[in-house]
């Protein structure tokens, strides 16, 4: 269960303001899509929810199940249920994918280690589901993975860690259509009343496979329009230009 409410959020990076008062409410079991042109603050919002120390909150609140999480550390937020599938997942040499995921699961299990056999069975099952070859369990974390493999690996982690609030930052970028379908299958498998999701994307394409409950458009650090799935289809025809002009007018 996760209810994420963002109130009047203002964020700066190195004294440059990126978010100008964002308001967004994602309720239990809802999937929201956040769309908008490049450089408009979508990733900033994602990273700020996760707690990336590069971003400074200058005003506003992030409430998870009614509790302000802005003072919590990154790992505390993760253990509270927040997950961020990153646009550029990091590589960590010498730490096997399986070892990493198992360590992360143990860190979230309140001191009760996840039994190895059960873990391996689940891992194998989910890797098969996502068409990830077996040997990727023993390879270094994201080490020498292609862009698409990294994205798939983010979804694998999400399926293993079972967060209640997942933020997927351009999970569709750099994917061919087959990979996109696999990623979408993974997201859809997670959908339930216990799973809330914010999908950040530039393109409508992903939303054909994962149909969101709500769509928001962000321009210049503000959400300028809210709607249902039809809003994404409209954007595909008209592009972001109209919104950008409106924003310029201010």
């Amino acid at each position: 269960m996760a209810d994420l409410e963002i109130k009047n959020l203002k964020v700066a990076v190195e004294d440059k303001t990126i978010l100008n008062g964002v308001n967004l409410h994602i309720k239990d079991g809802e999937v929201h899509a956040l769309m908008g042109p490049n450089g408009t603050g979508k990733s900033t919002l994602s990273e700020t929810i996760m707690g990336n120390p590069r971003y400074t909150i200058t005003d506003g609140q992030i409430l998870l199940n009614g509790k302000d999480i802005t003072k919590m550390s990154v790992d505390q937020r993760a253990r509270a249920g927040v997950f961020l599938a990153m646009q550029y997942p990091r590589e960590v040499a010498g730490v096997s994918n399986a070892n990493f995921i198992h360590s992360a699961m143990n860190a979230r299990s309140n001191g009760k280690p996840v039994p190895v056999l059960k873990f391996l069975q689940d891992l194998q099952h989910n890797m098969k589901f996502l068409d990830i070859p077996d040997e990727y369990a023993d390879r270094g974390l994201n080490e020498d993975f292609s862009g698409g493999e990294k994205k798939r690996n983010e979804i694998l982690q999400m399926m293993m860690l079972k967060p209640s609030m997942a933020i997927l930052d351009e999970i569709d970028s750099g994917l061919d259509i087959d990979a996109l379908k696999v990623v979408a299958k993974g997201i859809n498998a997670m959908r339930s009343d216990k799973f809330s999701c914010l999908m950040v994307t530039h393109y409508q394409r992903l939303l054909n496979y994962v149909v969101p409950d709500f769509v928001h458009v962000m321009v210049d650090g503000k959400i300028v329009k809210d709607g249902g799935p039809e809003l994404a289809k409209e954007l595909e025809k008209t592009g972001y230009e109209g919104f950008e002009k409106e924003a310029e007018k201010g």
């Binding site: 996760m50 993760a78 997950f83 990091r90 960590v92 992360a104």
Partner: peptide, 13 residues
């Protein structure tokens, strides 16, 4: 960046 990535999965610093 590596630390942040691992922490975002729930591992302490």
């Amino acid at each position: 960046e590596q630390l942040y990535y691992l922490e975002s999965r729930g591992l302490s610093e």
